[in-house]
């Protein structure tokens, strides 16, 4: 009973916040509602027992996206763009009509589904032992459907190259974003020194825990990225130039390691085959590499293309 009340209240809150984010007239207000939306969705995933997803949502939705969007609004305002022009009433009506129709159809489709269909849960459980890890989510992501994950990590790389290629030509070779600064010894700088040890601990723990309980390279990498960004915002560290060899090695290390393991699998039974007796070590190695690359890539994505001189 209490559980049902909790679920209903949470659902209503999520809906209200989503509507507030879309319909709000104040751009900054919409951004804040979107951050809250990420937090509430993380709560929903937690309540559903999908802790892996909740971790990702908490780190991305409530963490990185917030920084990105708050910065974007500030830049728009500095650039003189105050509020987006609303679409014409006719276009708006058509958009809403299409959305309502699509939502109705999807609703009808979901209503017709068998609520007890378990998908592949049983198949995953049967094969869990041979996967080398105890967390079924990790087993799916790194072993059963590791090929999806390999492509997804490369997608992150594509996005980073895309963001970098938005740089102005004269800044190529410079450092990403603008130089951040804060009062030495001030609150921000102190927080920037206080957080890294704990943040590093939490990030590494989440990556390491991922093999047997919720967590993994993506969640851990996001935490590490966020901690680095905070330290950068406190003016304590700065990203290396985009042409730095070290930086480029870091962003491709994870995907390249994953690909190397995949190709080496050809000699051990097939592309991306992880022999059960070594699967755990291989998965941990891949996750460590991926966490490093994901952390660097996400942090650089938020930092943005180079915006200052090469030297």
């Amino acid at each position: 009973m209490t559980g049902a009340i909790f679920d209903i209240v949470l659902c209503l809150l999520i809906l209200a916040v989503a509507l507030a984010a879309i319909l709000g007239r104040d751009l900054f207000g919409s951004v804040v509602f979107f951050i809250v939306y990420g937090l509430l969705v993380a709560l929903a995933w937690t309540r559903l027992g999908a802790v892996d997803v909740a971790l990702a949502e908490a780190a991305i939705g409530a963490g990185l996206t917030g920084v990105l969007l708050v910065g974007a609004v500030a830049r728009l305002r500095r650039g003189g763009v105050v509020e987006p022009t609303p679409p014409r009433p006719l276009a708006r009506g058509a958009q809403m009509g299409i959305c309502v129709l699509a939502a109705g159809l999807v609703g009808a489709a979901i209503a017709g589904l068998d609520p007890d269909a378990a998908g592949l849960t049983a198949t995953v459980a049967q094969n869990l032992e041979a996967s080398g890890v105890g967390n079924p989510v990790t087993a799916v992501l790194l072993n059963f459907r590791g090929y999806d994950t390999l492509l997804e990590t490369v997608v992150l790389l594509v996005v980073l190259i895309g963001v970098w290629s938005l740089a102005e030509d004269r800044y190529w070779g410079g450092r990403p974003g603008l130089r951040q600064h804060a009062k030495p010894g001030g609150v921000l700088a102190t927080y920037g020194r206080f957080l890294p040890p704990l943040g590093l601990l939490a990030g590494v723990y989440v990556v390491w825990a991922g093999t047997d309980q919720p967590g993994g390279a993506f969640q851990g990498g996001t935490i590490l990225a966020a901690v680095w960004l905070l330290v950068a915002m406190a003016g304590l560290v700065d990203a290396p130039p985009v042409t730095a060899r070290r930086l480029r090695l870091t962003i491709v290390a994870g995907p390249a390691l994953f690909l190397a393991v995949a190709v080496a699998g050809i000699f051990m039974g097939g592309f991306l085959h992880l022999p059960p007796e070594h699967a755990k070590q291989l998965i941990q190695t891949i996750e460590a590499g991926l966490a490093l690359s994901i952390a660097a890539t996400l942090a650089l994505l938020v930092a943005g293309p180079p915006q200052r001189g090469a030297r």
Binding site: A42, A54, L64, G66, L198, A202, A226, L229, M233
Partner: peptide, 22 residues
């Protein structure tokens, strides 16, 4: 599930810090 709370509190100040910096 505590790991979710850990991440949330680790990143709790993020949006605010971005806001005051902006």
């Amino acid at each position: 599930m505590l790991d979710v709370a850990l991440v949330l509190s680790l990143l709790a100040a993020f949006a605010s810090v971005a806001f005051v910096k902006a």
